[in-house]
Simulated assay, not measured.
Amino acid sequence: MCGRMALTLPHDAMAQVFDAAPANDLPDVPNYNVCPTAQVATVTSDAGTRHLRAMRWGFVPHWYTGVTDRPLLINARAETIAEKPAFRAACRERRCLIPASGFYEWTRLEDGTKLPWYITRRDGAPLAFAGIWQDWVRDGAALTTCAIVTTGANAAMAPIHHRIPVVLEQEDWPLWLGEAGKGAARLMQAPGEDVLHFHRVSRAVNSNRASGPELIDPIDAD
């Protein structure tokens, strides 16, 4: 799964990397502890014209009567995304990229202690998660919301967690965004074994109120 991430790339740099026109309401960066329900930067494509825009992290299906009265959908499982009523239309029609500098995952010890890890691309490039999005409108309130697509972890990540975000390579962005025809389903798989790098970080990040660049600093494993 993916339940917390960091985004440190400036807006103009993100716009250049993803060849997208930036909106004026993008979330502040750097943010070393992006939590669910926060605004995140996303990339969408409108007939080949890409837009860098803000969305609420936490997918809200159109039939929800409120944003807090049902489970918070921050991830969508690749194995069932095309079948789940909440996600199947978005999977076909509303796919996006969700940029991140890195994301956090936790291993849990037998005594319940949670040990956090920070995961990035080994080559230093930004991560581009496969995402889906949905407009939600109810009683005059309107939100644009998104979820990260996840799949089973590869062998390198499995000791940390059994799920992993779908990380898309740059050459696959057009297909996921609907710019290169059909067949995006084949992209919903774990990244190669050598794509990601991970290191232990301080348990300070266990708090969703923590902030600052020290959250991603490596520490010796204990």
Rank of each mutant, 00 (worst) to 15 (best):
residue 67 V to L: 14
residue 96 C to P: 01
residue 49 T to Q: 04
residue 126 P to F: 05
residue 96 C to E: 01
residue 13 A to P: 00
residue 77 R to I: 02
residue 178 G to V: 02
residue 19 D to L: 02
residue 150 T to W: 04
residue 29 V to M: 10
residue 201 V to K: 11
residue 145 T to M: 03
residue 55 M to F: 01
residue 114 K to M: 10
residue 124 G to D: 13
residue 159 P to C: 07
residue 94 R to C: 02
residue 40 V to G: 03
residue 188 M to V: 04
residue 23 A to R: 01
residue 179 E to I: 00
residue 95 R to Q: 02
residue 29 V to Q: 12
residue 23 A to S: 13
residue 101 S to Y: 05
residue 110 E to F: 00
residue 52 L to Y: 08
residue 80 T to C: 03
residue 99 P to V: 07
residue 155 A to V: 04
residue 92 R to N: 04
residue 170 Q to V: 05
residue 189 Q to R: 15
residue 220 D to F: 01
residue 176 W to Q: 04
residue 78 A to C: 05
residue 117 W to S: 13
residue 15 A to K: 05
residue 128 A to Q: 12
residue 109 L to V: 00
residue 68 T to N: 15
residue 116 P to W: 09
residue 91 C to I: 00
residue 207 S to T: 09
residue 86 A to H: 09
residue 54 A to M: 02
residue 1 M to F: 12
residue 105 E to G: 03
residue 115 L to W: 02
residue 41 A to H: 07
residue 64 Y to S: 03
residue 26 L to K: 05
residue 120 T to A: 07
residue 130 A to T: 03
residue 136 W to C: 05
residue 71 P to R: 07
residue 95 R to G: 01
residue 109 L to G: 13
residue 77 R to A: 11
residue 164 I to Q: 15
residue 90 A to C: 02
residue 70 R to V: 00
residue 194 D to Y: 02
residue 11 H to Y: 01
residue 107 T to A: 10
residue 62 H to R: 13
residue 123 D to S: 10
residue 55 M to R: 11
residue 211 S to Q: 14
residue 85 P to Q: 04
residue 138 R to E: 11
residue 75 N to T: 08
residue 25 D to V: 06
residue 189 Q to M: 10
residue 140 G to Q: 09
residue 135 D to C: 03
residue 5 M to Q: 12
residue 60 V to A: 07
residue 73 L to E: 01
residue 193 E to Y: 01
residue 218 P to M: 04
residue 37 T to P: 02
residue 136 W to S: 02
residue 44 T to V: 14
residue 38 A to R: 10
residue 142 A to R: 15
residue 70 R to M: 14
residue 80 T to A: 06
residue 207 S to I: 08
residue 163 R to Q: 13
residue 170 Q to K: 14
residue 206 N to I: 04
residue 136 W to N: 06
residue 111 D to V: 01
residue 89 A to W: 12
residue 64 Y to E: 10
residue 203 R to V: 09
residue 9 L to S: 05
residue 191 P to Q: 07
residue 123 D to Y: 10
residue 169 E to Q: 15
residue 77 R to S: 09
residue 115 L to F: 00
residue 162 H to T: 13
residue 13 A to L: 12
residue 146 C to G: 04
residue 17 V to E: 14
residue 70 R to H: 15
residue 107 T to K: 14
residue 221 A to R: 13
residue 25 D to A: 09
residue 183 G to H: 12
residue 221 A to W: 08
residue 50 R to V: 00
residue 132 I to Q: 06
residue 90 A to E: 03
residue 209 R to D: 13
residue 142 A to D: 05
residue 37 T to M: 13
residue 52 L to W: 08
residue 184 A to S: 12
residue 100 A to I: 11
residue 17 V to D: 06
residue 217 D to S: 10
residue 9 L to K: 10
residue 163 R to K: 14
residue 216 I to K: 00
residue 152 G to H: 12
residue 171 E to P: 00
residue 87 F to Y: 14
residue 83 E to M: 05
residue 129 F to V: 06
residue 91 C to Y: 15
residue 94 R to D: 01
residue 200 R to I: 04
residue 27 P to Q: 08
residue 10 P to Y: 11
